[in-house]
């Protein structure tokens, strides 16, 4: 797990985002165990308190759950998982549009280009 953290955004926010990405890309599967907060802190070289905060936040959002004393796991709730996926797609498209917007390209051309690129990438 390698993450480039930036220094101006709260670390816990960056950690959560990182988790969402992993979930959306299915690097983390529903029900999969996640590292303990200490392990996470160590892996990301962040303060354990921050890792703790990120986990707490994710638990509140229902991204992860904890049963008794066992390690936390990624939620199996398809609704939440779907929402995460949608959120990420939405965010990506938002930023894409924000970037392409000022160039003033017609939508058809854009869609065509996307289709071409997208297929090329997939092959």
């Amino acid at each position: 797990m390698n993450v480039n953290l930036n220094k101006r955004e709260p670390v816990y926010v960056q950690v959560i985002r990182h988790f969402k990405e992993q979930i959306a890309t299915r690097n983390l599967n529903p029900g999969q165990e996640i590292p303990s907060r200490r392990e996470l802190a160590n892996q990301l070289k962040i303060n354990p308190n921050t890792a703790q905060r990120a986990y707490k936040e994710m638990e509140e959002q229902g991204l992860i759950y904890t049963e008794g004393n066992s390690p936390s796991k990624i939620t199996k709730d398809e609704k939440i998982l779907g929402a995460v996926r949608e959120e990420l797609i939405g965010q990506a498209i938002d930023s894409f549009i924000a970037a392409i917007g000022p160039i003033d390209v017609p939508l058809d051309e854009v869609v065509g280009l996307i289709r071409e690129k997208y297929r090329g990438d997939k092959e």
Binding site: L5, K7, R38, N42, L44, K45, I46, N47, P48, N49
Partner: peptide, 29 residues
């Protein structure tokens, strides 16, 4: 640096001094 994210430091109060913050910026509260 690994020590700071480990159980060796966890739950303790730590005061460190430094004149150069870069390496540890994400470690400190």
């Amino acid at each position: 640096a690994n020590v700071f994210t480990s159980h060796l430091v966890e739950d303790r109060g730590v005061i460190i001094t430094t004149h150069e913050i870069n390496d540890i910026e994400h470690l400190i509260d």
